[in-house]
Design a protein around this nucleic acid. Structure first.
Lengths: 250, 250
DNA sequence: TGAGTTGTACTCAAATTGAGGAGGACTTCG
DNA sequence: CGAAGTCCTCCTCAATTTGAGTACAACTCA
């Protein structure tokens, strides 16, 4: 049988019915706290339950494109706002009974957004909101989304160490103190301002100066701060390591 | 409509036909060189072409279990040997036209093995072998497996830095020099023996002494070396960073 | 026996980190 | 307006970690 004949004779229906979805763990920083984007499901299963935005991958759609589309559709955050959001693949979840409808494998994605407007519920969602991750414990999530969120948060904390991802949480121009606030918020740990300043400027390609300063001092005083842009580094070397992880290591 | 009614009315066939497969990037060290496990495809498409071991996920099978099963089936490496192989999820690949048969999303896995016997070709494979990764450039792989292998290698190099994964490439008891050889082989970079020794012993939980030494000196001389076991650390802190990555960072 | 190899332990300088302090440019409040 | 407080940006200094080299004894092979 030639390869061509084989392909003609091939019937996809012979294979077990599996559906592939994408889910998005979208993180941002609002009011000095790390927030996660959740939608309230408008359809069964788990109708009314809070869940990660996501949905079925379309026949001719890339996985990453599906994640961006679902994020945009279910939150009304599109166009120029979407451009500033960084997406990357997180992991796939395919435990046989994770969805009561059928066998569903979900390719989870992680999204990092600067402070975006309040989301508008879109298709399949009756509500959408940014929820502080500190409030997650008191909210039951649909499917195995609790696990996906935990993995996403750990990935985010880890990526801050060795990639310039923190710059995705701030505007195009930012101060070192704003960047430090990102690290402190995501890591949940205060950092030494002077040492952080020295380190950020010493890592090649992390930030570059704009030559400008802020128009005013901070809200509670202090001098104007110098403004920086994200640099061209894609990996930080040496890395900015989280302090005191000895406990979590075993 | 109640949730129960919904589930009864639900027809999986309404959803686009997608198949989910697993592929395995299995790495080991043989004769001082990093080797990758490849199989020669016995079936179309890409019949006769070399590819990663892998195949369809079964209806009631976890993704990780599928990866282990396919690895065992196509290489004849099972039982006790399989126990010592470490599997972890790598990433998912789902470009719409990556498989000529139909839409297939593959969840790639990474496997780290100590020196295993030569594989025996199993189901769907007409041959199986460990290939030095240095010889990869001259061999065309099926599907997008070239890309998957590249991602797997980079992940392996990176995981050596901050996890005790290197101990998965050696036997249950090993010398510091054997461990150093793993790092040098995977990173493709010679390391300072004295500094490596100091570092390995100083990282908490990376190795623990057995109190024993090797029965003989090295093949070309030198004293007997002390023997160690893998420790209980799951993350290395501080990490063992690859030297001189400044060039690859941008 | 002698030459070569290497595991382990040192030393020492350079680089990086952790902790704290100081100046000065801002803020708000009275 | 002045006083008090904030905090960005520097600076110092000690402690730790790294990179590079040396030393020595235990082993191999010829």
């Amino acid at each position: 049988m030639s390869e061509e004949q084989f392909l003609r004779a091939y019937d996809p229906r012979d294979y077990p019915a599996v559906a592939v979805t994408v889910d998005v763990v979208a993180l941002t920083i609002r009011d000095g706290a790390l927030h996660l984007l959740l939608i309230q499901r408008a359809e069964p299963p788990f109708e009314g339950c809070w869940a990660l935005p996501g949905g079925f991958v379309r026949p001719d759609e890339d996985l990453g494109a599906a994640a961006r589309r679902e994020f945009a559709e279910e939150t009304g955050l599109g166009g120029e706002q979407l451009r500033r959001v960084h997406f990357e693949q997180l992991a796939s979840y395919g435990t046989p009974d994770r969805d009561p409808r059928m066998r569903i494998v979900s390719v989870a994605h992680l999204a990092f957004a600067p402070d975006l407007p309040e989301p508008q519920a879109g298709s399949d969602a009756s509500a959408a909101q940014w929820l502080p991750v500190s409030a997650l414990a008191s909210r039951q999530l649909a499917f195995d989304h609790e696990r996906i969120v935990a993995d996403g948060l750990e990935r985010a904390r880890s990526k801050l160490e060795y990639t310039p991802l923190a710059t995705r949480f701030v505007g195009d121009e930012f101060t070192i103190a704003e960047l430090r606030a990102v690290y402190e918020t995501v890591w949940g740990h205060p950092l030494h301002p002077g040492n952080f300043h020295r380190k950020v400027l010493s890592v090649p390609g992390l930030v570059e100066s704009t030559g400008q300063t802020t128009a005013h001092g901070g809200a509670k005083g202090g001098p104007r701060a110098k403004l920086y842009r994200a640099g061209d580094a894609r990996l930080l070397h040496p890395a900015l390591l989280r302090p005191g992880r000895e406990e979590t290591v075993r």
